[in-house]
Design a binder for these strands. Structure first.
Lengths: 141, 141
DNA sequence: GTATGTGCAAACTTTTTGCACTTCG
DNA sequence: CGAAGTGCAAAAAGTTTGCACATAC
C-alpha cells in the first residue's frame, strides 16, 4: 500500500501538473485540516514545517488545485473563501453559532433530488449540480 | 394603496430602526437592482441620485438590514458578498458562465425537503434552515 | 534545456473602524 | 434634547499580480 504522500504525488501528477513540494504540502494540509480551512489556516499550518512558503504561492496553488478539480471552494456567509478536500458531490452543515462546516454525504437525498429535478424542467437552463446547505446549531457550540 | 417608498419606510420603522434617507435608498436600490447586487453595485446606483453617500455607510446599513432580517446575504463562489431583498425562504440558480443568480421559489421542493429531514435526524444538531443551490448554465449566457 | 512554478513585495479590492458631526423621533 | 445614524478617511483583511529566480521533467 502506498503512503499518503505518494497518493498525493499521484493525484497531482495525473492532472499533468508538476509535482512540487509546495503543491504536495498544501494538498496534505487540506486533508489534515478537516474543518474546511481558509487560505490563511493552510499557510499557518504549512509554515510550522515549511517556513518559507509565500502567501502568494498558497493562493496560486489553491487556484490551480481548484481548476484541476483536486479540491473545491466552499461558499460561506462571510467574505472568506474556504477549501474542501472532498471532491465527490456532497452537502454541508453550517453552524449558526460558529464557523464550523461539517461534511454531509447522503446518497438517498441525492437520488431524491435527482428524481425531483428530472421531472421539474428549467427552461433555458442546463442543470449541472445541486448542493444543499443545511444551516443550524450544533449542541456543542 | 401606499407608494413603494412608504412601504419601505414602514418596513424600516417596524423594526424599531430610525428611518433615514440612506436606509430608504439602500433598501430601494436592492429592490430595483434585481440580480443580487454587491455593496459596490448598490453604492454606484445610489450615487446617481444621492452622490454623498459614504461607502462605510452602505456597509453599515447593509449590516443593519441583514441583522434586522430586511435583506439576506447571498453566498457565492467568489469572495464578494451579494445581497437579496427577498427574505422569504427560497433557493437560487447559479450560472456557471457568468455571475447571474436567479431566485427560485418552489414550495413543493420545500415540502419534500421538510418531510425528508423530519425523519432524518441529525444527532447533536438543531436544524434551522435548508437552502438548495442549483448550479448550471443559462442558454443566454 | 525549457516550460512551469515559486518567492517576494507591492498593489488592489472589499470590508471594517473610530470619531466628530448630524439627524430622527 | 438625546440616542442613533452618517461621513470621512484611515486601516485591516483577503487576495492578486509582476517579475526575477528556481525547479521538475
Amino acid at each position: 500500500m502506498k503512503t499518503s504522500i505518494e497518493h498525493i504525488r499521484d493525484k497531482i501528477s495525473k492532472k499533468g501538473l508538476k509535482v512540487t513540494p509546495q503543491r504536495i504540502c498544501i494538498l496534505e494540509a487540506i486533508y489534515d485540516l478537516d474543518n474546511h480551512p481558509t487560505a490563511d489556516n493552510i499557510t499557518e499550518y504549512i509554515r510550522e514545517t515549511h517556513p518559507n512558503i509565500a502567501t502568494g504561492t498558497v493562493y496560486k496553488v489553491l487556484e490551480t488545485l481548484v481548476e484541476n478539480n483536486l479540491i473545491k471552494k466552499v461558499k460561506t456567509d462571510r467574505d472568506i473563501m474556504r477549501y474542501d478536500g472532498i471532491i465527490e458531490a456532497h452537502h454541508h452543515l453550517y453552524c449558526s453559532e460558529c464557523d464550523l462546516i461539517e461534511d454531509y454525504m447522503d446518497h438517498e437525498l441525492d437520488e431524491l433530488l435527482k428524481d425531483y429535478f428530472k421531472k421539474k424542467k428549467f427552461p433555458g437552463f442546463k442543470l449541472e449540480d445541486i448542493v444543499v446547505q443545511i444551516r443550524g446549531t450544533f449542541d456543542k457550540c
